[in-house]
Computed example of a mutant assay.
Amino acid sequence: METLVLLLTVLLGLRLIGALGVARFAAWSTCGAYALALMLIVTGATHFVPASFADTPVPTHADLVAMVPPWVPFPALMVYLTGVLELAGAVGLVLGRTRRWAGLGLAVLFVLLIPANIYAALAEIPFHGAPATPLWVRIPEQMLYIAVALLARRSVAGSTDGKARTATESVTISSPR
């Protein structure tokens, strides 16, 4: 739930900044890309926090390994892999040239993580000492992340309206007279 609050707070804050005149954040899609990137940096980093940090407010690698369904091979490695993918996706969202592919890749990743969310909810796996998040919360939250990742794909570097520029709009060609 904290990740949802982080995403929405940053999204609305960036959009407010855009409404106040910062052109980079004039489009919801760009704000979504940056907000999702920040959320992924936070969540991706937790994939690498050792279990010895269990007494801190930060979730650990062990908390995430517990969520992996038993039929998934090498659960610890899968948690590291998804952490790397989240961090790479965050970088891809911030770099305008890779934003479309990053948004698509993250949407696919979020879909692939749904079974872990279902397993954790149905098996009532506690998360960092807190009770398991119910399925009716997990699935809509995951759908929102997918939607924001797909929305972020609409944002292109150099464009404040979220639309790609055509070659004729980006380059002015002068003809000799």
Rank of each mutant, 00 (worst) to 15 (best):
L77N: 10
A45P: 14
S52F: 12
A45M: 15
P69E: 03
L14D: 09
S159G: 12
G21C: 07
V171S: 10
D161C: 08
M1K: 04
P176S: 13
T43D: 09
V94M: 11
R15L: 14
L64R: 10
V10C: 03
T160C: 00
A147G: 12
L109K: 10
F127V: 05
V65H: 05
A26D: 13
L106Q: 01
F25P: 09
Q142N: 11
S174Y: 09
P57L: 08
A164C: 06
R154N: 10
I146V: 13
A102F: 09
V137H: 14
D63R: 11
C31G: 04
S52N: 14
R138L: 03
L95P: 06
I114S: 05
R177F: 15
G32Q: 02
W71N: 11
G162A: 05
P73G: 14
P126V: 04
A35M: 06
T82C: 11
I146H: 12
A102T: 02
L16V: 00
V58N: 07
W28E: 01
F25Q: 05
L113T: 05
A152G: 05
P69T: 01
R15S: 08
G18E: 07
A90P: 04
V148A: 07
V65A: 12
R153P: 08
R165L: 04
K163Y: 04
A120Y: 02
L109P: 12
V137T: 12
V65M: 05
T56F: 02
P176Y: 05
A147P: 09
L7K: 15
A132Y: 02
C31S: 15
L16K: 06
L14P: 07
L12Y: 10
P176Q: 14
L11T: 08
S170T: 14
P75A: 12
I125N: 00
A37D: 05
V79C: 06
I125D: 01
I173A: 06
S29A: 15
R153M: 15
A132W: 01
S170K: 15
E86G: 06
H61A: 06
I114M: 10
R97C: 07
A23Y: 01
I139F: 03
T9C: 14
R99A: 00
T3L: 13
R15Y: 13
R138H: 02
A26V: 09
A132Q: 08
R165F: 12
V22D: 07
P69R: 00
R100Q: 11
R24Q: 15
P69Q: 01
P115Y: 00
